[in-house]
């Protein structure tokens, strides 16, 4: 099946759960395992939380989500037009966080990387951040 969904939503914490569940539901027709669905949910939760907590920090913007299902492969694009990331390579390191006061774990990108097949981050200071995640949803059993 080939399918596509484009969604624009207010960047508020209440929408983190909504987006991970919507994207999980979108992937269901490919018939992934429960573990695969949970991996997708967790990775999406991380990407969306970052838009809200870091991208828009003390403001409220919008998050744009573009999801495609091509056969059994899921392509997810999550974008904010917030502050952007100064050093993407450093941001992606395990345990790296700029929010030490609020005690974040610095594991968002680590989880996205571990749970999905690919992770790509595009960011521009003052313009925003786009995270691309892909995952093959079906793994043949042998």
């Amino acid at each position: 099946m080939n399918n596509r969904m484009l969604l624009k939503i207010k960047a508020i914490p209440e929408n983190v759960g909504f987006l991970r569940n919507v994207i999980a539901a979108f992937a269901v027709p490919a018939d992934p395992s429960v573990e695969t669905i949970n991996d997708v949910k967790t990775a999406v939760s991380e990407a969306v939380t970052n838009c809200i907590v870091h991208g828009y920090k003390n403001t409220v913007g919008e998050i744009t989500v573009d999801v495609e299902l091509i056969d059994t492969k899921l392509y997810i694009k999550i974008n904010d037009t917030g502050v952007g990331i100064e050093n993407v390579q450093q941001a992606m390191e395990d345990f790296f966080t700029t929010e030490t006061a609020e005690e974040r774990s610095g594991l968002g990108f680590t989880i996205m990387k571990t749970y999905m097949d690919t992770l790509k981050v595009e960011s521009k200071l003052g313009a925003g951040t786009t995270v691309y995640l892909t995952k093959e949803l079906i793994h043949a059993e042998c």
């Binding site: 949910k41 967790t42 939760s45 939380t49 005690e103 774990s105 594991l107 989880i111």
Partner: peptide, 8 residues
């Protein structure tokens, strides 16, 4: 469900 915010 829990994500890395919960870990924090």
């Amino acid at each position: 469900f829990m994500d890395s915010t919960g870990i924090g």
